[in-house]
Design a protein around this nucleic acid. Structure first.
Lengths: 108, 108
DNA sequence: ACATTACGTAAGCCATAGCTTACGGTAAGT
DNA sequence: ACTTACCGTAAGCTATGGCTTACGTAATGT
């Protein structure tokens, strides 16, 4: 249910900006929207997407809603990337060496 | 120039599927397209996006083009995520403790 | 009780992304 | 030289995503 398409959640630049803003600490919706070039409802919609992706969580504080970064989605992202990392590195080196050696064969 | 919107490149499910397919080793375009539910030109377009994002690279092999995973984009992704990781973790723990202690204050 | 503040959601509009088919170009095989 | 295989790109269509305005709701203050 949650965690559906974490990458799509961070694909939008505005959404990524909101997420990066939360790095400086928990923020209420209005406080975030004030420093954004889009309307407050737009921010709400973005936060909804980020929440469904497990990237943020929220807590009520009086009449406000304070959002903060949720490590769950971030951890899943890390895991996904790491699944490629080692093999991609070694394979890439092999490719580079292969291509440079081919250049020696055909100097021109 | 490159590396523009790495997340958007991996946001599309088809594109992610192509990328994951390359985990099993370098592949030519046609070989990839054969096991995909979309046409070969579609795969070409996806590979172009992945390449611009620094996630794949390609090498000519006769009349074919062999694509393989490029660690550059992947590394940038890792760096971006790691930039949040530590702080998000400690902050999240603090949030959870704060919220559970509040529940003790207002038991019902 | 009433007003105010802060937020989420619905409805609608418009730009963009992803797909298809059609076409052009390059490398190999005969 | 001619055909074949393989691929990239252009053009065009359609669905989706992100934005705005308008509205409804819950919590605080007076």
């Amino acid at each position: 249910m949650a965690y559906r398409n974490r990458f799509a959640a961070l694909a939008d630049p505005t959404r990524r900006r909101i997420f990066e803003r939360l790095k400086s600490g928990p923020q209420a919706v209005g406080a975030i929207a004030r420093r954004m070039p889009v309307s407050r409802p737009a921010v709400s919609q973005h936060l909804k997407v980020l929440k469904e992706a497990g990237l943020v969580a929220d807590r009520p504080e009086g009449t406000r809603r304070v959002y903060y970064i949720d490590p769950n989605g971030l951890g899943a992202l890390r895991a996904w990337v790491d699944q490629f990392w080692d093999k991609a590195l070694t394979e890439f080196k092999a490719e580079v060496e292969m291509q440079t050696s081919e250049r020696k064969d055909k100097p021109k």
